[in-house]
C-alpha cells in the first residue's frame, strides 16, 4: 500500500510527489492550479494550509457553522466537507476572489456599511453565502433572506445587520 505517504506541509506543488497524492486541476479565483493532493485533504485545508487563502475560515470543520463557505462552480458549499481531490475540474471562488480593496463586491461594501460583522471570523463565509443566495434566486423577502442565510452562524450576533446588508444588495440587483 502506498497511501500512507504524507508530504511536508505546504508542498502541494512539490515535484517529488508522494505516491498517494493525486493530480487535480482546480480553478481558484480564476487562476488554474495543477495540484497534487492527498485524498484526505479537504478543500478548506487545501485553501488555508497549502494555498495561503486563509480568508476562508475554519469554524467547526464539520459543516455546522458555515464559516468555510465558498462558491463551488458558482454554488455555495461548506468547503470543510469536500475532499479536494474530488473537485478535479471545478471552479472555486473564495472571499479573496469575490473582491479586493478598490474593487469590492457589492456585498463586501454593504457589509462594511451596515456593520454586518464584529470579530469578522464568520464574515467571509457570510459574504460567500450571500453571494450564493443571490445567485440561487430563491430569496426576495427579509424572512427568506434570514432563512436562507441560516447556514452561517455568527456568534457576535450581527444577524440583523447582515440581513440589512444582503437585502440592500439583493434589492439593488447589482451583485456581480
Amino acid at each position: 500500500m502506498t497511501h500512507h505517504t504524507s508530504p511536508k506541509a505546504g508542498t502541494a506543488h512539490a515535484s517529488a510527489a508522494p505516491m498517494a497524492s493525486m493530480g487535480a486541476s482546480l480553478t481558484i479565483n480564476g487562476t488554474p492550479h495543477q495540484l497534487l493532493i492527498e485524498p484526505w485533504t479537504t478543500l478548506l485545508d487545501l485553501l488555508r494550509e497549502q494555498l495561503g487563502l486563509t480568508g476562508t475560515k475554519k469554524g467547526c470543520d464539520h459543516g455546522q457553522c458555515g464559516a468555510c463557505t465558498v462558491l463551488l462552480d458558482g454554488r455555495r458549499i461548506n468547503s470543510c466537507l469536500k475532499l479536494a481531490v474530488s473537485l478535479d475540474g471545478s471552479e472555486v471562488t473564495t472571499v479573496e476572489g469575490l473582491g479586493q480593496a478598490g474593487r469590492l463586491h457589492p456585498l463586501q461594501a454593504a457589509f462594511i456599511e451596515h456593520d454586518a460583522f464584529q470579530c469578522g471570523y464568520c464574515t467571509p463565509g457570510q459574504i460567500c453565502s450571500a453571494a450564493g443566495l443571490i445567485a440561487e434566486g430563491h430569496a426576495r423577502s427579509r424572512e427568506e433572506v434570514r432563512e436562507q442565510m441560516s447556514g452561517n452562524l455568527c456568534r457576535c450576533g450581527a444577524y440583523t445587520n447582515i440581513a440589512d446588508a444582503v437585502l440592500e444588495v439583493l434589492e439593488k440587483g447589482d451583485a456581480r
Partner: peptide
C-alpha cells in the same frame, strides 16, 4: 464610523491566530 478594520475583514485579509505563515 464604519469599522476601520472592515476592509480587511470583508476581503479575507485579516489574519487570525492559525493563519500566519
Amino acid at each position: 464610523l464604519s469599522r476601520v478594520d472592515g476592509l480587511e475583514k470583508v476581503t479575507g485579509r485579516a489574519k487570525y491566530a492559525a493563519e500566519y505563515e
